[in-house]
């Protein structure tokens, strides 16, 4: 059922030329250099320490690995992370 809804949403977004992050609630990631990371449409924090940050998404989760990671701002649907980022991974 969910897959059908997702497919319909994607088709609608493509047909009407609407950004998918709005229609499908997809995460929007912005990186400035390798030290600043911005994320919109998150669903909370799963795990946080200085080397690893796991962020819950609408589908799966996202993992950031690095050193001296710090959550600079945290709002209900957006966040920014500063630190020496080595890797970003998406998990379903």
């Amino acid at each position: 059922m969910d897959k059908k809804r997702e497919a319909l949403s994607r088709a609608m977004a493509e047909f009407l030329d609407i950004p998918k992050d709005l229609v499908m609630d997809l995460p929007k990631v912005t990186m400035i250099g390798r030290n600043e990371f911005y994320l919109e449409n998150h669903r909370g924090i799963i795990e946080y320490n200085l080397t690893r940050l796991r962020i819950n998404l609408s589908r799966g989760f996202l993992e950031i690995q690095g050193n001296n990671l710090e959550i600079k701002n945290l709002l209900p649907d957006e966040m920014s992370v500063y630190g020496d980022i080595n890797m970003i991974k998406f998990f379903d």
Binding site: G44, Y48, L50, E70, I71, K72, N73, L74, P76
Partner: peptide, 16 residues
């Protein structure tokens, strides 16, 4: 942190 977020509390400069 997640519960605070759910209640709309703005949190910043989170350091472990």
């Amino acid at each position: 942190i997640n519960m605070a977020l759910a209640r709309g509390i703005y949190i910043w400069e989170i350091k472990r």
